[in-house]
Amino acid sequence: MIGKVIIGKSFAGCIAYNLERPEADLLEAYGVRETSIKDMIHDFNMQRKLNPSLGEAVGHIVLSWSAEDKSKLSPVIMVERAREYMEKMKIKDTQYMIIQHTDRAHPHLHLIYNRVANNGRTITDRYQKVNNAKVCKEITLRYGYHLSEGKAAVNRHRLRGADRTKYEMNDTIQAAVRLAKSFPHLEAMLRQQGIHVHYKHLGGSESVQGISFSKGAIRLKGSEIDRSLSYGKIRLQIDRNMRSLPKEQWSVGKGERPVSDIRVNAIRDVLIDNGPSLFSELLRSEQTENSEILPGWQKRKRKRKKGRRI
């Protein structure tokens, strides 16, 4: 099971879009009349007035399962999973609707809820995308649903707008990172594909803290496109690329840093993402590489002389 989080401003547009189609089936509604679409929109907007300063009051979650999970699901079970999802996401004490669409091979629901709760408080969207991924994985593992194979399993031909651009950027950047010998080299390759690289510097210094990419009006952090595209991980991959080349090709062009600089900083940055286990792995790697170039007499340990020091 996976979830797509959408925050919007118009209940009229969201509800009409999801209900005014032949493949739509309203499975459950809470806090709103089911007499007509017009009445539902009215009821959502009346509660919205309890918190008029909240501009984006429309919560919209798309919950999808793999086509392989069809035999495990029914409208009743899907409603139960949607309720469990809302509970874990702390979406409670508010109006909501659960709508099933049957226009795709895979089962999926549209959950529409009011971000203005019954008491007028705001249901936060802080860290919602991160929590969404965590909760979906918990439910998937708990009930034995099919685990997707990440971005490779996405039906890209169905993507539109920003989602389509994000996946196109991911494919292009991943391919360029596997070939890049330096960051300027990476920038040049991506520029030819209409993608620009931006760096975040630490406290106004020259020390780079993060990386983002833009294409047209869309700009995303590397880690938002894919976890493997954080600044530290790209840096480590560039270092691997350089080490796989013959030493005579380890040239440093104008504006490029030597591989040794990349290596030192890559260890620091990537440890943030990968923790102590990676440090041990890198340390062993360095010790192995260094032992291959040391003279034999330096490899042997010196024996301590017996007796006390004077």
Score class of each variant (00 low, 15 high):
residue 134 K to D: 00
residue 289 E to F: 05
residue 73 L to M: 06
residue 263 R to F: 07
residue 235 R to F: 01
residue 207 S to H: 09
residue 117 A to V: 00
residue 159 L to E: 13
residue 177 V to G: 14
residue 198 H to E: 07
residue 213 F to W: 06
residue 127 Y to L: 14
residue 195 I to C: 13
residue 261 D to V: 04
residue 63 L to G: 01
residue 144 G to L: 01
residue 44 F to A: 11
residue 265 N to M: 13
residue 155 N to R: 04
residue 124 T to F: 07
residue 217 A to C: 08
residue 295 P to N: 11
residue 301 K to N: 01
residue 219 R to F: 11
residue 110 H to R: 07
residue 129 K to R: 10
residue 218 I to G: 03
residue 131 N to K: 04
residue 33 R to Q: 14
residue 205 S to H: 13
residue 292 E to H: 03
residue 176 A to P: 14
residue 37 I to W: 14
residue 237 Q to V: 12
residue 63 L to S: 02
residue 64 S to P: 14
residue 105 A to D: 11
residue 175 A to D: 02
residue 171 D to C: 06
residue 26 L to P: 08
residue 154 V to D: 13
residue 229 L to F: 10
residue 263 R to C: 12
residue 292 E to L: 08
residue 40 M to E: 11
residue 39 D to F: 08
residue 133 A to S: 05
residue 112 I to M: 03
residue 55 G to D: 15
residue 203 G to V: 07
residue 168 E to K: 09
residue 183 F to K: 08
residue 51 N to T: 10
residue 162 A to T: 08
residue 219 R to Y: 10
residue 40 M to C: 04
residue 41 I to A: 10
residue 190 L to K: 13
residue 278 L to S: 04
residue 143 Y to P: 01
residue 63 L to F: 02
residue 127 Y to S: 15
residue 252 V to T: 09
residue 210 G to Y: 11
residue 255 G to N: 00
residue 125 D to Q: 13
residue 25 D to K: 14
residue 243 R to L: 05
residue 125 D to L: 05
residue 38 K to D: 11
residue 111 L to C: 00
residue 228 S to M: 09
residue 238 I to V: 05
residue 87 E to K: 00
residue 233 K to F: 09
residue 223 S to I: 15
residue 268 R to I: 03
residue 12 A to M: 04
residue 99 I to Y: 15
residue 202 L to A: 06
residue 160 R to F: 01
residue 271 L to V: 13
residue 164 R to N: 04
residue 110 H to G: 07
residue 24 A to N: 04
residue 180 A to N: 08
residue 237 Q to K: 09
residue 156 R to C: 05
residue 92 K to Q: 00
residue 105 A to S: 06
residue 30 Y to S: 03
residue 309 R to N: 11
residue 269 D to F: 09
residue 57 A to H: 09
residue 182 S to W: 02
residue 100 Q to S: 10
residue 33 R to I: 01
residue 72 K to I: 04
residue 120 G to S: 07
residue 21 R to V: 03
residue 202 L to S: 05
residue 93 D to Y: 03
residue 143 Y to R: 01
residue 246 P to G: 05
residue 33 R to M: 10
residue 188 A to Y: 13
residue 135 V to S: 00
residue 92 K to D: 00
residue 183 F to G: 04
residue 307 G to V: 12
residue 63 L to C: 14
residue 181 K to Y: 03
residue 155 N to H: 01
residue 46 M to D: 14
residue 250 W to G: 15
residue 137 K to A: 02
residue 245 L to V: 02
residue 235 R to S: 15
residue 29 A to H: 13
residue 151 K to E: 08
residue 227 R to K: 14
residue 14 C to R: 14
residue 295 P to K: 12
residue 274 N to Y: 12
residue 165 T to G: 15
residue 120 G to N: 09
residue 189 M to D: 10
residue 134 K to F: 00
residue 253 G to M: 00
residue 277 S to N: 10
residue 260 S to G: 12
residue 287 Q to M: 12
residue 170 N to I: 06
residue 197 V to E: 10
